[in-house]
């Protein structure tokens, strides 16, 4: 406890970096997963390869991916970009299937009605299919958020400072306090992100809880 009070500033800095490294890839991954999921849903033949390939991405060990990134991107080993790109890939891996399945769960009647009313495919995607897929996509997003928070900490092994650094630091010094603080901070962050996604979903789906539109 005293250790934490002595290092509040440092822990806070690590916490904020951790947020940045976990959330930016979440957003990028989400944006990339939308078209991929749409294609997988729209063209039945494309579904198996897209879902298999994105699924396989997730099986690449994170440490290996972090180490590979500088070689592929030409970035420095300590660059944040490596982490952001790698985690974006993981997010795409988790969300593509979710997006495809969420779109598939939109009632066919509703899509037919939209088409019959002269709503073109692009407009239909953004105004009808995507909003109705939000509950399913949100569930996937929550998994991806927690997963990102956890995987970011591995980057401490490469010397990229965030909450994971507390683990390497504590381990190197055989000192428990930073490790405990790091675990608590990671849990806290995961819970905060989860609550944030739940809240955003609630706001985006007024029809599911009988709230009247303004």
């Amino acid at each position: 406890m005293t250790w934490f009070l002595d290092h509040v500033g440092q822990v806070l800095t690590l916490f904020l970096t951790h947020i940045r490294l976990a959330v930016i890839p979440l957003v990028i991954g989400m944006v990339l997963a939308l078209p991929l999921g749409w294609v997988a849903r729209r063209f039945p033949l494309a579904y198996p390869p897209i879902i298999t390939v994105t699924g396989l991405l997730y099986t690449i060990p994170s440490l290996a991916l972090f180490v590979l990134m500088p070689l592929i991107l030409g970035t420095g080993i300590l660059s944040d970009t490596n982490i952001i790109v790698a985690l974006s890939l993981y997010t795409v891996a988790l969300l593509t299937r979710t997006v495809a399945d969420g779109l598939a769960a939109v009632p066919d009647q509703v899509v037919q009605a939209a088409t019959a009313m002269g709503i073109g495919p692009l407009r239909r995607f953004f105004t009808v299919e995507l909003p109705l897929a939000v509950p399913v996509i949100s569930a996937g997003l929550r998994v991806a958020a927690v997963s990102n928070v956890s995987i970011v900490s591995v980057a401490a092994l490469l010397g990229i400072a965030q909450l994971g650094s507390l683990f390497t630091d504590g381990f190197a010094r055989q000192f428990l306090d930073p490790i405990v603080v790091g675990i608590i901070a990671c849990l806290l962050l995961a819970v905060l992100l989860d609550l944030l996604i739940i809240a955003l979903t609630w706001v985006a789906t007024p029809w599911l809880h009988g709230r009247r539109a303004a």
Partner: peptide
């Protein structure tokens, strides 16, 4: 063409959202 033709289906096909 479709915008000029009314269309009604079973259960209304209403937009739930």
């Amino acid at each position: 063409l479709r915008r000029g033709i009314g269309y009604v289906i079973q259960s209304g096909g209403l937009f739930p959202h």
